[in-house]
Design a protein around this nucleic acid. Structure first.
Lengths: 205, 205, 205, 205
DNA sequence: GATGAATGAGCATTCATTCAT
DNA sequence: AATGAATGAATGCTCATTCAT
């Protein structure tokens, strides 16, 4: 009895929530957010229109929920990697691209659309994501310093910012192209050709 | 003299078109495209609602027209610069940012929103702009090779792509921030701190 | 008793639908469909604009709904008649005209307008109505044969087709005249003067 | 000089008018009147938008002009026929159908649509056409009496009305069917099977 | 006679969201 | 938690028509 929080009812509710997210993700990937109506989403789940609002306050919130799912996986995996500083850095960058690519261009485009526009006053989590990514890279670089791989003089902020901008720039170009090439491959290429040039001056030795 | 087909009527028409673009630009900058109605735009010009559609097929088309104006100025100026290869490159990058910043975040955000989303099937000119920017940088770099500033071995495509991605990445981050810092300054900073690192290996001597 | 699924909510919904149809019928009769706006219809029912679209997909659909109501009554009554074959036939023809006349020229004109035009891709039920009327007459005539009133050699199809064309022709002329004479009287006249001529050769004895 | 009313200019003008009618006829036949815009019509003729209004007061007027062309041909031919009364009658009826069929269902449907609806307050010529057709048949029948083919007691009005209603009814059914069968053949069939039944009692002898 | 820029009325339609059941 | 009927704001767009040139 104690701790038994998941009654059958609550389990059902969780399932419903998951079904909604899944359906929304599919539909957004197929047609984009604007062209996807609440009733389409609920119809696909076999629930009533209003049920959507049991779980999400506004339509856009389901996009946030989807993003959170994706980014959580992304970060979990990207940071799990063990290895030298450079390997970890590359791993992070490439996996960032890989995850986003896997989840589909349309979804990524919607995410950009909804994040770029301040009027939607959408879940601020997304906006903060930029800072989140920045911090992630910052700590990655900081750990590089700690581990003695990077010089102490490295400008952590400027460097992490640069890398975030690169990742986002690659993402935006990929979105513009409607995903007609591989975002991941593009990032890999960057890691081979340019990352060393940028990092080298800060490497110890 | 030759081709002087501009009767008074056609001149008036051109003026009307310009007035519409100007009004739309102001309003979009103030409130974004979605919150700007056609009748607001036309009212500000003192023309009838329908007149808008004499010049633009759809609401979004005025955004394209605005972009074209801005980018044309941008390119005209950015390429006019005389100087060494590196100076010209920096000038281009910084001015790219400066122009976009001057025209306002809201406008830039709208441009990203409308370009990132393929469903609007908006004037393809915008999508092509990425290629246009790429080509511009490519020819800039190529001219650097011709003038003997860069080694022949430089990978023109990869390098120009990298720079475009950087510019776009900086732009996207700036959009995400709602323009709370200077895009131009950020690009300037990049030119100082990182551009040399990237270019140096390709510089002759 | 059985199948009594009508909760209070569903009953309310049915009532709303009926109110909409009634209001639309009145307004169309007064001004025609084009001049009748959705908000006029809903205002007259005291419901919100959008409620109309809970029950009808497009504006034209309410016209279909109205037709169906009218025609259902018509058929129900017209076929209820007991009597000799000729009496039943006359009763059908005259009542057809009478019902349509009662429901008003404007409505009839709208019905013709909307049925004649294939581009509206309006509810196909209306187009099928022609076939429905044909079948009705066909079965009427067939029953005449069965009951021994008509010779077996009668060409059922051709005869029923002729009668439908007559009914429709009288209706169209009545529409053209804006209802300035009586459709029903015209049909009655036809039944007296010409129907016997047409039927006689097929009558037994 | 005298009587030389057709200056080159006037000839050109007549040609323009003809071109407009021809283009309109084609476009209406292809898409119906509603979907055909003035600028489509003028574009197809290579003239300016406004030129349309040099020749027609309102959009619908071009439909009238087209009808007049068609009906004039129709009447000219239908009445030219020499022969016995019954032959002339049949010839008229069948040719009526044939002409309308030749000019296309879409056109016929538009004509019905526009004639049936009194709100358009369209050129009254069309409404009068019903009377015109009636009169035509009336005089045909009257001439039958004069020539001694029909008894004097024949009810000219009722008979001609019946025949017009039949023609119109066949036309309407044909319109409903979107022209999926032949109007002319249908009328021919009627002339064989039923016309004699109707006329016979009034034939002399 | 021809032009074509300007007009401006006019409304169906969508759909996110609410809330009584 | 689920339902689904009701809401109602909000506006892009068309296009027949006019008229100054």
């Amino acid at each position: 009895m104690a701790g038994q929080k998941l009654t059958k009812r609550k389990l059902e509710a969780l399932k419903t929530r998951e079904k909604l997210i899944k359906a929304a993700r599919e539909l957004i990937q197929e047609q984009g957010l604007d062209r996807t109506s609440i009733s389409e989403i609920t119809k696909r789940c076999g629930v009533a229109n209003g049920t959507f609002y049991t779980y999400f306050k506004r339509k856009e919130d389901v996009l946030s929920a989807i993003s959170i799912e994706i980014f959580n996986e992304l970060y979990a995996k990207a940071l799990s990697y063990e290895g030298s500083f450079l390997q970890r850095l590359e791993f992070f960058l490439i996996n960032f691209a890989a995850y986003i690519e896997e989840s589909g261009v349309r979804l990524c485009q919607e995410w950009v659309r909804n994040t770029v526009n301040p009027k939607l006053a959408l879940n601020d989590d997304d906006k903060v994501k930029l800072d989140f990514d920045l911090n992630l890279l910052r700590s990655l670089i900081a750990s590089g310093v700690e581990q003695g791989a990077l010089r102490v003089e490295v400008e952590v902020d400027a460097l992490s910012r640069l890398l975030v901008e690169l990742l986002y720039g690659q993402m935006l170009c990929w979105d513009f192209s409607d995903g007609t090439y591989s975002y991941k491959e593009r990032t890999k290429e960057f890691c081979e050709k340019f990352l060393p040039l940028i990092i080298k001056p800060y490497l110890k030795e």
